[in-house]
Amino acid sequence: MANGNPAILAEGLEKSYGKTRALDGLSLSVEEGTVLGVLGPNGAGKTTAVRILTTLLKPDAGRAEVAGLDVLKQADQLRSRIGLTGQYAAVDEYLTGRENLEMVGRLYHLPKKLARKRADELLERFDLTDAASRLAKTYSGGMRRRLDLAASLVLAPPVLFLDEPTTGLDPRSRLSMWEIIGELVSGGTTLLLTTQYLDEADRLANRIAVVDRGTVIAEGTSDDLKARVGGERLEITVSEGSDLAAAARILEAHTHSDVRIDEGRRQTGATVEGGARLISSVVRDLNEADVGIDDLGLHRPTLDDVFLALTGHAAEESEGKSSDNHQQEVA
């Protein structure tokens, strides 16, 4: 991986399942030692891209290199240089945690003793030592994910792929996964992370690629993407019985952008410039017009806003994961 080549490079990847185009010319590139968050709704093609980059799937067209190796021509060598943690914790429920890791070590062709030692080391590092001799089916969702992640790290791969690593986890397990991932990244691992959680990409990734319908529709740092939807938003919630339309008119006088009105939540909002000074003049005008306020705040745009602005639909619009979760995403 010398010469400053990207650790992960995909060019024009295409993949169709029947009439469904899962990938439609997807290209991306990840510098060594950095984290790329691939953000998109279900069915955007994230998993398909990961499967191609980890040698599990052949693209119909395009090419890809990981750790300087061609994913098609050098697949065998590549498998020793990458780790993959898929969407559904791929641990064997009827093996103990330690047996799971030892088996993976043996299948990476480590000598028996080393496989054992490495398993113990990873169990300790992922806080699973106490549960090491229990069958994985007794593990909580968070423990399974940690075990699955540990399995992908057996050979300390320089490039790691995490496909929706926290989907379905409770908030506490999610935070602990984030901490673990953060440690890995600070250790120099190149990481490609797919997620449909905007806060996750925001927190973990150096750069974010927004994927929709099989192609990257925007790429940049979190701040780059937020800048695309303009500045800050001022959101006003009027109190019960107050004149929402009047509040919206006042807001309109202070902005150049469209004013949004949400009757149900008694909210109005618009993109504004001028920060705190603007707030004070808006508040003064509202008071003069005798409009009661429950809440008023200045918000930086979230990646949700970014997604909405880029795609015309919300990021989690197609949420509602099907129960047949063994199916790969295609649509």
């Binding site: 559904y88 429920e93 990476y108």
Partner: peptide, 15 residues
């Protein structure tokens, strides 16, 4: 093994 994703794990290994 196929449904639980274990085969994906195995296929990503150099075995």
């Amino acid at each position: 093994d196929l449904q639980k994703g274990l085969v994906d794990r195995f296929r990503s290994l150099p075995m």
